[in-house]
Amino acid sequence: MLILVDGINKSKFTTILDDMYKLRARVFQDRMGWDVRVTNGREIDEFDELDPAYVICLDDEYEVVGCARLLQTTGPHMLSDVFYDILDGEPPLRSALIWESTRFCVDRDRLAKGTARNSVSYATCELMAGILEYGKNSGISDIITVIDPVMDRVLKRSDNAPYGYVGKTAQMGKVKALAALCDCTDERINKVRAFAGIEGEIFLDEEIVIAAEQARNPGIMESELHSYCDEQLLCATTERERSDALALKDAITEMLRARRMSDA
């Protein structure tokens, strides 16, 4: 199941976003060895400050198990500002109808093997279908996605082979990266859905996710503490203040978790 988090609703999903940043740190730094900046166990870069849209995958227990980040190609995005090696110094595509997808990942530790719900394969396809559907419903014709050769093979295996590539495969730290094109058409969406056996609506209502979050983290006290931490984070003006605020947030989250364990 997916939840769409963007600049409009992100204040309602701070825990989910935080878990997503942690997942990205585990995947891109720890597992894949990308040259990304991780602070206090969270991978956050300057594009996260630009109000991107996140398609976030949740398992049946509403834990974050996958994510992808979308930005318009008309404005600042990774291919224009970071991944220029892929484009060999050439200017990127710029179109109202093309979005860029980056930081696509799933949680291999939490998700099961096989192809059933809550598996790596299913979550991957759900995310792909979600990106394409959100794009299509927004009038977007194509997605350009920055991926590594492994992900490229995953796309091909999932009946979702890119129809084209832009630029070349470039070395990015320890790994290679390339830019692939996928069309946001019913044909492609149906193929991905059919491959994984995904049926019906894949995006969850905001209210359902909020209710599930509250059920997982009961207590007024807790939500007050969380909003205090988030306020501190928002008010932070220097890197130092920011990392202090994150450390405080971590400490409080840990404390609350420990308390819940002892209650149970």
Binding site: S95, Y163, G164, L181
Partner: peptide, 17 residues
Amino acid sequence: SISPRTVEVHLRSSREK
């Protein structure tokens, strides 16, 4: 040696630029 849709994507980008 690229797909017609890739050609179209480049053309669309050129038109908009």
